Computed example of a mutant assay.
Amino acid sequence: MPASSKAQQRAAGAALSAKRGETKVKDLKGASKDMYKSMSEEALDHMASTKRKGLPEKKD
């Protein structure tokens, strides 16, 4: 599922980075921490790779 806002895309990118071991899990906060726990690496990769052009900053 593609990201529906820029904030969601960034959170998915942070969670994916932690899932791959590039950053520490303890540094995650809020939505990115929830995404880390509940989503697979493949799903996070798909969401994080969404193009930002045309996306709202935050979802209404």
Rank of each mutant, 00 (worst) to 15 (best):
A12M: 05
T50G: 03
R20G: 00
A7K: 14
L28H: 09
H46I: 14
E22D: 11
Y36A: 09
L55I: 06
A18M: 11
A14K: 12
S17W: 02
Y36G: 06
M39D: 09
K29V: 13
L44Q: 01
M39N: 11
L28D: 14
S38R: 14
S32R: 07
T50V: 05
K26V: 13
K59F: 04
K26Q: 14
K37H: 10
D45L: 06
D45A: 08
S4P: 00
Q9D: 06
S17F: 02
S4H: 06
K37M: 13
S49M: 01
A3C: 11
K24R: 15
L28W: 10
S49I: 00
K24H: 09
K53N: 02
T23C: 05
S40K: 06
K58Y: 15
K59A: 11
A48F: 01
K33C: 07
A3V: 06
A11P: 06
S17M: 11
M47V: 07
A14T: 07
D34Q: 14
G30V: 11
A31W: 12
M39P: 04
G54E: 07
K26F: 12
A12H: 04
M39H: 09
L28C: 11
S32G: 09
K53L: 04
Q8E: 15
M47F: 02
V25E: 15
R52E: 14
G21I: 09
G54C: 02
K29D: 12
R20Q: 10
S4E: 12
